[in-house]
Amino acid sequence: MNQQASRYFVPDPSHFPLVGSAALFLLASGAVLWMNKLAPGPYVVLAGFVVLLFMLFGWFGRVIDESEGGRYNKQVDVSFRWGMSWFIFSEVMFFAAFFGALFYVRVLSVPDLASAEQQLLWPGFNADWPSAGPKFAEQFTPMGAMGIPLINTLLLLSSGATLTWAHWGLVAGKRGQLKLGLMLTIALGLIFLSLQVYEYVHAYQDLNLKLTTGVYGSTFFMLTGFHGLHVTIGATMLLVILFRVMAGHFKPDHHFAFEAVAWYWHFVDVVWLFLFVVVYWL
């Protein structure tokens, strides 16, 4: 058997895992303090973020060096592919919990609260969705689907196309197309995020639709909020990929980092399509 190909790769010792744990410990305890309005909370969270950034830069920097240094063989590449696929699967299940909550309240708990046996408890409550529950006294306007959300759908769909176009460029060795495609994708992502911020401001100021607006507000903001967070992470990763492209990284046949981020981006895209249909539209 070929010596080169059969030699296993095992990374050298590294202190970044411990740094990462310290970061998460700071973030968690800082968040606990902050949420309970205890003074040092925000500073501890900030410190946690700084340590986390340090860890991410250091750890990914190391991985990039190893990759560019040609230390990853075919087997490592396949491991990365499995790893990323399972990671995305775990993200799917995270969203599934929140989609499950949405279906549960729409199909079971809200209709049940308006059922005949609950009439004594919550007189006059009707189960029309969107509902903020029987005890929510204020008026609010639900978010329509056909304005900004529709535009956002088109933005994300085209960003998926531009990213694939960039990938074609990478495979064909057309670096210009690769860069342009990446920039377009990032730009579309950022426009999406700005529109979402605008939509949130609009909801809070004009529609009286808030996180506290009963179960409609809860599911609306948690689902779209976690999705927005994922778009932010995805755009950041795309930016890193763009910088690496500028620095001359990636070959037509060796660029899994690019593909991993592309998978992630498409996954975030698909989540949005579900959101658009069941949160905004129906």
Binding site: F98, A101, V105, S109, D112, A132, G133, T212, Y216, S218
Partner: peptide, 26 residues
């Protein structure tokens, strides 16, 4: 499970109503 405890966290601190019948949850 992470999703479930996150909902508890936001119900506790950020006024969501996942698990409160008054807000339509359960």
């Amino acid at each position: 499970l992470a999703g479930a405890v996150t909902m508890i966290l936001t119900d506790r601190h950020f006024g969501t109503s996942f698990f409160s019948a008054a807000g339509g949850g359960d």
